[in-house]
Amino acid sequence: MSIYKEILGKQFYKLHPMLQKRYGFKDYKTFKATGVMHKITSGPKWLYLFKLFAARRKFLFPEHGNNIPFHIVNTQQIGSNGEQQVHWERRFYFPNINRDFNALMTLDIDKVIVKDYLGEPSLFYSELTFEVTDQGHLRIESQKQRLVLGKFELPIPRLFQGNVLVNESYVKENENFCIHVWITNPLIGTLFEYKGEFRTDDL
């Protein structure tokens, strides 16, 4: 059973059938898709140096633009401790450079959260909650976050967190998944955002 099916429980079957296939990993261990991000927003310019550093860790990046080609690979795997994991690889093909946004997710069923380590090597940790909307979309929100410094993890006060909101849906008419990722901060506003669509490589 995938970590997403386990955390959603009965809600999982309220997802659009294609989202069930995507997050259920029933017939495969890897999900691959290609698409386009209609909009990528990178936030305030004064965060440029931080995002340039984060880009080297395959996390946030300073580039922005419209209609940026995109590729995603989700791989279900088992970690060295026997824990089930899902590795996320997201690549954005800007005109002059490619940028990656990677993560490793595991399940904490006792807390009913997904543990999300962002970047390679990890730079941030975020706890994620999952729910299904009345329309059959998947909605993901961040909760507690920590800054990862090697073996040490420092809690980030709520006022300084990057609050993540993700909405993913499936549009039957064009056989595309639609995704909207929005990261905001109470003081700064939008830190990072992308919105677009993609189609599985096996269609």
Rank of each mutant, 00 (worst) to 15 (best):
M1S: 10
G9T: 10
H16N: 14
Q20F: 06
K21G: 05
R22I: 05
K29E: 05
T30G: 01
T30W: 01
K32L: 09
M37S: 05
K39L: 14
I40G: 02
K51I: 02
L52P: 00
F53M: 13
R56N: 11
R57E: 00
F61T: 07
E63T: 07
H64T: 12
P69A: 06
H71T: 14
N74G: 02
Q77A: 13
N81Y: 00
G82Y: 08
Q84V: 12
Q84I: 11
L104T: 14
L104G: 03
K111P: 06
I113G: 01
V114T: 10
K115R: 15
Y117L: 13
L118D: 00
P121M: 07
L123G: 14
Y125M: 09
L128F: 06
E141G: 05
S142T: 08
S142G: 12
L147Q: 03
V148A: 07
F152T: 11
L154C: 07
P155R: 09
R158P: 01
L159G: 03
N167E: 15
E168R: 10
Y170V: 09
E175V: 12
I179R: 01
V181K: 04
T190D: 00
L191A: 00
E193P: 00
K195V: 13
K195E: 14
G196T: 07
E197T: 11
